[in-house]
């Protein structure tokens, strides 16, 4: 999977890494059990601080998307975290819908867009 880090973007780099890995898992670019680069390898490859990668991986681990092991390194979790729609997800989604409404999008347009993204991810 390709990671694209944009240093001009307001989103912090650790969040960009986290988001893209989540999207990669969702659209099947990263399969369960697939090895990810170690913190050192990724920071070296991207030319960023090890702490940044560490922060992204810690977040992904906490959310259950990846698992780390001293011997085998970092890998995508065998089972993606389930447990239904969380409050955090709901509030995030609500915020996005509100922003879309304020941008002038109709309900149908929002639904179409969601459908489009959902299809792409699958």
């Amino acid at each position: 999977m390709l990671l694209e880090l944009d240093f001009t973007d307001e989103t912090p780099i650790y969040m960009q890494i986290r988001n893209q890995i989540v999207m990669g898992i969702a659209d099947g670019k990263l399969s369960p059990g697939e090895k990810l680069p170690t913190i050192r390898a990724l920071s070296n490859e991207a030319g960023i601080n090890m702490m940044t990668v560490n922060k992204a991986y810690a977040l992904l681990k906490q959310e259950g998307f990846i698992q780390t092991d001293r011997r085998s390194g970092v890998a995508v979790s065998g089972s993606v975290p389930s447990g239904g729609v969380t409050e955090k997800l709901k509030s995030g989604f609500k915020l996005l819908v509100s922003e879309a409404k304020l941008c002038g999008m109709t309900k149908q347009e929002i639904l179409n867009l969601c459908g489009e993204f959902f299809e792409t991810e699958n």
């Binding site: 390709l2 880090l5 890995i21």
Partner: peptide, 14 residues
């Protein structure tokens, strides 16, 4: 489309 971004391949980095 990736102009100005740092692009890396996670499989190769691993």
């Amino acid at each position: 489309s990736s102009a100005g971004k740092i692009v890396l391949d996670t499989k190769v980095s691993a």
